[in-house]
Design a binder for these strands. Structure first.
Lengths: 336, 336
DNA sequence: GCCGCCTTTGCAAGCGTGTGCAAAGCTTGC
DNA sequence: GCAAGCTTTGCACACGCTTGCAAAGGCGGC
């Protein structure tokens, strides 16, 4: 069996007894074809198992229909949830998603990105906290539409989707205060991405405003293990905090587990904990984590909608959206 | 700024003072170019910001370099871990991953798949338990290489990667028996995929062989919530099991949480629990789940290696690999 | 009946690349 | 110095598709 023998529009045309153009027009929305020829063509195409060659079409139109998703930490609950939403919505919009994994620190990132450019992707969506601004410039320079999620690059052109991180930090302080907490802690990763730092700044600002004791630790990556380490640091202090806001749900899970199982601390009686993202595990019985929900569906919808609008020619120019993270109450903070 | 103005090999050729073929050959591995012209070309390409148009190249070669990943439940810990490994390794192999999300039950799956065919993907890797065999046939018919992970279709041609599910089911019975358990339970989803059923059959077979009491429940999807429901079913029985094997770690987490927090049962003292997959959460302090580890890295490596071998012309034909899932001991089963 | 208009159709010119073929240039051995 | 052999280079065609252009056909209004 010959591994590749796709049938071309020409063969369909011959079988249908029409010209090659007619076939092409049949599969081009908005082209002028009579109902009769369209029928003949689709019948022949069906019989032969014809599929438009999107490579050739993209070559002509100079527009590939490919959207590439640039993402690190794919296996993380929050990222994979966002990925699910994005791919689903892109498919519904008739686009196709190319996945670029920026986990590896070697040259594979650049290689993959350049690959995306070589495939003439129409757009890129960057979900990664990766701080490399040159990637952004490269995409823009090559005529790609760009969506930045939870980043803060200043380059004009891309759609920037951000959350109200600072305000979330402030709001959770109020919740802690209402629960009677006096000594506040912020557990952060040392990744230093703008969203994480925004939460931290809001938290610290609000705490000092209320005259509450507050301290910050930063360590490692935003995962479970780092949460445990941060708990170690906070809970071995002479004066333990009675409330901690973790920059991430994963950090919060690690923190809570360490507090309970290594230090025998009862949550929320002796320690209130809050997180950010609302990953699935936050709702599990073992955690019942009060946390801020990232509106992943809304983020994905906004991104895809913007890409589609743009496609229709309206140059929407630089734009930015600011969504709010809603606080989901569970059981890791005492009632007020 | 014109949104799209890529520069072509022709422009590079003119700037470098060579023919367009020379440019083409410079970027084609194994082609005959002198070091001198190669230098001139790469310099010019660099200066102009040239990127080979992979669409045109794919059109000529009839081979796109695209591998499409067909996956459902992307946001699930096990799936996203596998996805991470696959995309990383594909990138290293110089291929590019196209992601197709089969979560939606409407027509978008077929549409997306047909899109993959229209992009002339060289291969597809199916990680989804989706039982639709017509997809398999469609891929094969269109000359794609195919890798099936944890499925059991009979079609010849694809590489099939499977685990020793049956044996795992048997092995865990031994572990339970050694822990002194007498009344065994198997908590399954009702998805009925071959890997899940394999674990169940092995478990039941070994248990009856040892003369141990064993019973099975199947419910819902393979997630956390189903685990809670299954716990409800088993633990409200007049005679409770003292050991349960969950077909999936997610099921096990839900089961364990329900057992502890809703029924006040102590794990592993009153109830031993084991899972399958070794997702990250299995190692979290709240669970300490003894479970079988899916060798995701090895699975991904095998899949990608096979794709690359194939590319070099050796028609490896139908092939199948059987990997073993190693039992990771934690604290959810009593010591023997 | 003729003219203008609108819809449908075919022709052919591209899109950016790979590659067979032949010519040219260079090396080697005598 | 010359023929044979190898390497390098350019030409031109092919890949499968879209689309502007013009020709053809259908239709109504005068």
């Amino acid at each position: 069996m010959p591994p590749k023998d796709f049938i071309s529009a020409l063969e369909v045309a011959q079988r249908a007894g029409v010209s090659r153009s007619a076939v092409s027009r049949t599969f081009t929305p908005g082209a002028s074809v009579s109902a009769e020829t369209r029928k003949k063509v689709t019948d022949a195409a069906e019989a032969l198992g014809y599929h438009v060659n999107e490579l050739a079409r993209g070559l002509m139109r100079n527009q590939s229909g490919i959207v590439c998703l640039i993402v690190s930490d794919v296996a993380t609950p929050y990222r994979s949830a966002l990925l699910r939403e994005l791919t689903g919505k892109l498919q519904n919009a008739g686009k196709v998603a190319m996945l670029i994994n920026t986990d590896r620190s070697d040259g594979s990132v650049d290689r993959a990105l350049s690959q995306a450019i070589r495939y003439r992707a129409d757009a890129s969506i960057i979900l990664s906290g990766l701080p490399d601004a040159s990637i952004v410039r490269l995409c823009l320079k090559n005529g790609q539409r760009l969506v930045l999620i939870n980043r803060d690059d200043d380059e004009p052109g891309p759609l920037k989707i951000n959350l109200d991180d600072f305000e979330a930090g402030e709001r959770i302080v109020t919740a802690f205060a209402r629960a009677g907490c006096k000594s506040l802690a912020f557990a952060n990763s040392d990744a230093g991405t703008p969203s994480l730092m925004g939460r931290e700044r809001g938290f610290v600002a609000a705490a000092t405003r209320l005259g509450l004791e507050v301290s910050v630790e930063r360590y490692g990556w935003t995962g479970y293990e780092a949460g445990r380490v941060l708990a170690q640091r906070f809970l071995t202090r002479p004066r333990r905090p009675d409330a901690v806001f973790c920059a991430t749900d994963l950090l919060a899970c690690g923190f809570m587990d360490a507090a309970r199982h290594q230090f025998g601390i009862s949550v929320p009686d002796q320690l209130c904990i809050a997180g950010f993202d609302d990953i699935e595990q936050a709702s599990w019985l073992s955690y019942g984590l009060t946390t801020f929900a990232q509106p992943v569906a809304e983020i994905a919808a906004k991104a895809v909608r913007w890409l589609s609008i743009d496609e229709n020619g309206n140059d929407t120019g630089s734009h930015s959206a600011r969504l709010t993270a809603e606080l989901v109450w569970r059981t890791s903070i005492r009632a007020g």
